[in-house]
Nucleic acid binder design. Structure first.
Lengths: 115, 115
DNA sequence: GTGGCTATATCAAAGTCTGATATAGTCTAT
DNA sequence: ATAGACTATATCAGACTTTGATATAGCCAC
């Protein structure tokens, strides 16, 4: 597991990025982020839903219910145009911070995918 | 200014990195991080000192007073061997998170220094 | 009809953060 | 001599944020 502060900092960037790929429902998001991070990040429901509701209140995502073939109904979230803008802003903030860390750690900390 | 969550996440990594370069006193650290980040990060005294004291309590830094030629005495902080270990751990956490973001954003977000 | 999984949601208690404030030494200008 | 600006460390109460526990409920297998 990553430290709390890193998980908090990456919450919105990752959530917006996942929704940029496709519409997803809450529970699906928690599973996906766990797989994607190889268990390094886990989002409990009590962390996820307040953020989703906040994003919705701010117009960055829209939601709609959809029945499931196997289980309770699902509430899907879709990134709005405004949300796409917020994602770009978020990416830029992350790059700004990485530039600061590069000054301290050098460029060896490549963001290129590992082999 | 970077968002609060990113500033919080980078606080300890940056602080340990600065102290790895050389011994510094609190006020100097606040000035240095502001310059280094081109104003994107500002640490108020009320943010800085609780963290420094916590790092000291956990044995990651040691402190000693030194008179100043021009002003009040300064309390210098020095990274301990244990603190160097913590810095390495912190760097690795950051890289782990960057790897996750690379999966979402692609490798174009190079960490190489800008021209 | 119990247990496990899926699925959304809330809340109170715990934990964290930070603007305001206190203290104090040096320097410059008046 | 003293007011204002800057340097320097430090604390704290009130504000803010986080999260484990809990509630509700549908589906499936035994």
């Amino acid at each position: 597991m990553l430290p709390k502060a890193l998980i908090a900092a990456s919450l919105k960037p990752i959530m917006l990025s996942l929704l940029a790929e496709r519409d997803m429902y809450g529970y699906e998001i928690t599973q996906r982020v766990q797989t994607l991070s190889e268990g390094k990040i886990r989002w409990a429901a009590s962390k996820l839903y307040p953020v989703l509701h906040d994003l919705e209140n701010r117009g960055l995502v829209a939601s709609f219910w959809q029945p499931s073939e196997s289980g309770p109904a699902r509430k899907y979230y879709r990134l709005t145009v405004k949300g796409q803008g917020a994602l770009e802003k978020t990416k830029q903030d992350w790059l700004d911070l990485n530039q600061i860390l590069v000054k301290l750690w050098g460029p060896d900390l490549s963001l290129a995918p590992s082999m």
